[in-house]
Amino acid sequence: MYRSLFPRDMFAEMDRLQREMQQAFDLSPTIRGFGRSGFPALNVGGTAKTVEIYALAPGVDPGTLEVHLDRGILTIAGERKGAAPASDGKETLHINERFEGAFRRVLTLPDDADPESVEAKARDGVVHITVQRQASSLPRRIAIQ
């Protein structure tokens, strides 16, 4: 309830502040997606005719991935199985930094994305999703009469 102006353990307080700031950055939405350091990592870009999304998901079977588009919201979901060997009590795993478990990434597509023209391909752990832009929004030259 009462906090001293100078905490007893300055390094512990600095560590707490750093963790709180990191959590705030991790939970803040980016321009098109939600959260940094999510799995799978996403690259989102586009051309005049398409929106290009690359989901980097090594070790995930493409048959288990689910890609849904509903009212301009693209969802990529699936599960990544663990790569560590089953423990029989004789081995000790000291560090396991590889993500395993269920995941879900959600993106808001631009208003000119055509929900009828979506294509997804998977190769070498990279899922490439192409969403065509609506023809009415594409740049065109107007002839002067």
Rank of each mutant, 00 (worst) to 15 (best):
E52R: 07
P62V: 11
L56C: 07
G82V: 13
G82K: 12
H68W: 01
G82M: 06
H68D: 14
Y54V: 02
G82R: 11
S87Q: 10
T64E: 13
G78T: 05
A77F: 00
A55T: 04
E52Q: 04
R71N: 11
V51H: 12
D61Q: 13
E66G: 13
L56P: 00
E66D: 12
A57M: 14
G78R: 10
V67Q: 04
K49D: 15
S87D: 12
G59W: 12
I53A: 00
E66Q: 13
T64F: 06
P62A: 05
G63W: 09
T50D: 15
T75A: 09
R71H: 05
G63L: 15
A57C: 00
T47N: 13
L74N: 01
L56T: 05
H68I: 06
E91Y: 04
A77E: 06
L74P: 00
L69S: 07
G72E: 11
T50M: 09
V60T: 10
T75N: 05
A83T: 15
R80L: 00
K49Y: 15
D70G: 06
T50C: 00
K49N: 13
R80H: 07
K81I: 12
D70V: 11
Y54T: 07
D88M: 01
V67T: 11
P62E: 02
K49L: 14
I76A: 02
I53C: 02
A77M: 03
V51I: 12
L56D: 08
L65T: 09
R80Q: 10
G89W: 00
G89R: 04
D61P: 03
D88T: 06
G63C: 10
V51F: 01
P62M: 10
P85N: 03
E91V: 07
G82L: 01
T64M: 12
A48I: 13
I73Y: 10
E66W: 02
G82D: 11
V67F: 00
G82Y: 06
K81W: 08
G78H: 01
S87Y: 03
Y54A: 10
P62F: 08
T50R: 07
T75V: 15
A55W: 06
V51L: 14
V51N: 07
K81H: 12
K81V: 14
L69I: 04
T47F: 08
E52G: 01
A55L: 07
T75Q: 11
K90Q: 01
K81T: 12
P62K: 03
R80K: 15
D70C: 04
L65C: 12
A77W: 02
E66C: 08
I53Y: 01
L65I: 15
P58L: 05
